[in-house]
């Protein structure tokens, strides 16, 4: 049985960071959608594409985006990242399982996404059992 490829959206205004991370995640086998602005996330959501994970920078609107997504699209797990320690602490109150301390190496991000998706799968199985 073929398994659906999880879709990750990387929201990052810096083109070089976004390129490096997105390429790495694609090499890991994920479908990756690249966004530059917060509106891009809503465009994707509106099309009905199932997003498993949104990986977004805290700056400039990450907190507001994560809060709104939690209300409107609870199926999307959000990982916010920042190089600022306070922002990481704050994100833990918004994202539940999500927050990441980013000295972001792509490998670390991929591991985090992998854990997140594994947790989601376990949770779905438990609900189905």
């Amino acid at each position: 049985m073929s398994q659906a490829i999880p879709t990750i959206m990387v929201l990052e205004p810096d083109v070089l960071l976004r390129m490096a991370l997105s390429e790495y995640l694609r090499d890991c086998g994920y479908r990756v959608i690249e966004g530059v602005k917060v509106e891009d996330v809503w465009t994707v959501i509106r099309t009905g594409v199932t997003l498993e994970v949104l990986f977004a920078s805290v700056q400039p609107d990450g907190f507001a985006l994560a809060s709104k997504l939690r209300q409107t699209s609870p199926g999307v797990d959000v990982i916010l990242y920042s190089g600022i320690a306070d922002a990481v602490d704050k994100s833990s109150t918004i994202c539940g399982r999500g927050p990441a301390k980013i000295r972001a190496r792509p490998e670390a991000v991929a591991r985090r996404i992998q854990r997140l998706l594994a947790g989601r799968e376990r949770s779905l199985k438990q609900k189905g059992a």
């Binding site: 083109v15 976004r18 390129m19 690249e34 966004g35 602005k37 509106e39 891009d40 465009t43």
Partner: peptide
């Protein structure tokens, strides 16, 4: 965004690596 996304997905499906700017 919508135009870039559609084109990027199309070219990736056709075997290209795509860098989006």
């Amino acid at each position: 965004f919508s135009t870039r996304w559609a084109a990027a997905e199309f070219f990736r499906a056709e075997g290209f690596m795509v860098v989006e700017a």
